[in-house]
Structure formats: C-alpha cells, structure tokens
Write a protein that binds this DNA or RNA. Structure first.
Length: 149
DNA sequence: GCCAACGTTGGC
DNA sequence: GCCAACGTTGGC
C-alpha cells in the first residue's frame, strides 16, 4: 500500500494510537481490492512513493471490514467526490494498524535483485496502482531479507 | 521536469 | 460502445 510520506508516512502511522483510515483511494481496481481481496488480519507493506528513496519501509495489518471513505462526502477534503451518491458510496477504505518500521528502505532496485520476487506486482512494468497484492511467498522472502530489524 | 503507461471523460 | 484527448501516477 503506497503513500507519499509528505502526505502520510510510516512515522505518522507509528505515532497513531488507533488504527488509521487508509483514505483517498479513487481508483476502481483499488476499490475492488479493498472490497474483495483484503481481510481483517492480513498484513501489508507500507510503501513510500515519491520519496527519497521510494520503497517498502515497514509493515502493517488490516483491521476490520471495508466501509465508505468519509472524505468522498466532505467538500473541504481534497478527496471530495461530488459524483458519489450518499446512498451508494463509490469509495471505500480499510483501517490499518502499525506493525513495524524496517531499519532500511527496500527500493524497487533492491527488490528487483531478490530471487523469487520477479513476478511481484509492484515490480511489473507500468504498474501504478496504490494498492497491490503480495503473495505469502513474496511476503516471507521480503521479511527474511537481512538488515530489516 | 520528463515521460511511459495507464485510467477517465465525453462527444459522437 | 468507440476512441481521442486529457489527466494522473510515480520512477528516474
């Protein structure tokens, strides 16, 4: 799950006393991942995009079920969507809980060099989604990389 | 700041 | 429903 650290970083999540809303996703594929693919208790990598360096910076956990993203109805929010019907919300989100921050950033170049991650979604050409699947195998490979903790 | 690769929009 | 134009993302 990607976030620009200038907007919301893993340090912000680490400081949060309660699970945080992963708000503002306005892409239908991501919406479907939130709705259909994620389950409470699933783990997710926190990825800093548009950062220096960009890459995986830590881990978190999905908490609870998907529910409508309140920012779509807030005219004061940058995520306001005037076309989203109140009685049929277009956008949903998940809450996430901080698990850990790694001691180093795993850049795309780092990940590309790791055997077994060749098929990973985030490494695929042209892939720009802010939320992408990770297989159990990929998770284990990454979590066992040296120097993370 | 460039630009590839998508997603979205809207005229027809 | 097609598709050109436009907007966005995000690494580099």
């Amino acid at each position: 799950m990607k976030s620009e650290p200038d907007c919301y970083s893993i340090d912000d999540l680490a400081k949060a006393s309660e699970p945080a809303m992963w708000e503002g996703c306005r892409n239908y594929t991501v919406r479907n991942y939130f709705r259909d693919t994620m389950s409470p208790g699933d783990r997710a990598f926190f990825y800093h995009s548009n950062a220096d360096p960009s890459g995986i910076v830590g881990a978190m956990e999905i908490v609870g079920d998907a529910y409508p993203d309140p920012t779509q109805f807030d005219p004061g929010s940058e995520y306001f969507d005037p076309k989203s019907p109140l009685d049929n919300p277009r956008w949903i989100l998940r809450n996430v809980r901080f698990l850990e921050k790694y001691r180093r950033v795993l850049s795309l170049a780092d990940l590309r060099a790791v055997p077994g991650l060749e098929e990973m979604f985030v490494l695929r050409r042209g892939q720009r989604l802010s939320v992408m699947p990770v297989t159990e195998q990929e998770w284990q490979i990454i979590e066992s990389l040296p120097g993370l903790r």
